[in-house]
């Protein structure tokens, strides 16, 4: 697997001051969904951003700007909420669809985390 850009050698250090881009696998899935949906024209990036701004503002209104004792800010939780918002607003999703599907998934028998016909789930693979 050859990356497009140098990952080693003299030009690598600027990448090394980075950090894990995604703290948990689901965050990368939520990110990938938003980017590919916008790229495919399911919604505009600005429409998504507006919902993201609103979700972040709502979190901050509730918890403050990260003062002592505030719960940890979970950026991608806001991101996921915003993604659901923009899809529901655009009619691609019903308001209860995700909750209903979550319940179905939760009811799967233990040890059956992956459906064989699906690819790239957020549990690492």
């Amino acid at each position: 697997m050859t990356a497009v850009l140098d990952t080693a050698g003299p030009a690598a250090p600027p990448r090394a001051n980075g950090e894990l881009v995604f703290a948990e696998p689901w965050e990368s899935r939520a990110f990938g969904m938003a980017v590919s949906l916008a790229d495919a024209g399911a919604f505009t990036w600005d429409a998504f951003r507006d919902r993201l701004v609103a979700r972040i503002a709502a979190w901050e209104a509730e918890h403050g700007a990260g003062g002592p004792g505030a719960p940890e800010f979970r950026y991608y939780a806001c991101w996921l909420d915003a993604l659901e918002d923009v899809l529901v607003d655009g009619g691609a999703l019903g308001g209860d669809d995700v909750a209903a599907r979550s319940t179905e998934l939760a009811a799967r028998p233990a040890g059956h985390d992956h459906r064989d016909d699906e690819h790239g789930h957020g549990h690492g693979h």
């Binding site: 689901w26 669809d97 699906e118």
Partner: peptide, 28 residues
């Protein structure tokens, strides 16, 4: 539900409805 589960639920719905292609997503 926790975000991990909601994410999985959302992805499975969007794949079913033909709105996302997991391979394209993986690439992004």
């Amino acid at each position: 539900p926790e975000p991990a589960q909601r994410t999985e639920a959302l992805e499975s719905l969007l794949v079913e409805r033909g709105l996302i292609d997991p391979a394209v997503m993986d690439k992004f």
